[in-house]
Design a protein around this nucleic acid. Structure first.
Length: 114
DNA sequence: AGCCTGACCTAGG
DNA sequence: TCCTAGGCCAGGC
């Protein structure tokens, strides 16, 4: 079953919808998202999708997406390198040295099923 | 159609 | 423990 629904949402779109489901004050990892969409090895693509997220009409909380180490690897891609951290802190996520504190606790496991 | 890039992840030295 | 190398998938040129 290669093709799924006619919607056949592109890889990017799938990521966007999933990231949008990330609750405030929580973060997730690229690999987790990739795995949730069915491509655990496409973690890189997730980041790429984030880069194109600005293309998405809907708002995508890319700041809630970090790498497996809980480090804000994508902070450099934000308007300001401090934007990502401030956004997270504004949501209650503590970030120190560009790294999410209590990452395990704030880590949110994405799931397609609502 | 082929080569390069990228906000990652895992493994080996 | 830090550094290097490879694989991975999709998009851009």
């Amino acid at each position: 079953m290669k093709k799924q629904s006619k919607e056949n949402t592109d890889f990017f779109v799938r990521v966007y919808q999933l990231v949008r489901k990330v609750p405030k004050g929580r973060v997730t990892s690229y690999g987790a998202i990739a795995a949730s969409i069915g491509s655990p090895r496409a973690a890189r693509m997730v980041g790429w999708a984030m880069n194109a997220s600005h293309s998405s009409k809907e708002y995508v909380p890319a700041h809630r997406v970090v790498n497996r180490n809980g480090v804000l690897t994508g902070k450099h891609h934000f308007p300001s390198i401090n934007t990502m951290q401030e956004l997270l802190e504004a949501e209650g996520v503590k970030v120190v040295n560009d790294k999410v504190q209590a990452f395990e606790k704030v880590f949110w496991i994405p799931r397609i099923k609502d």
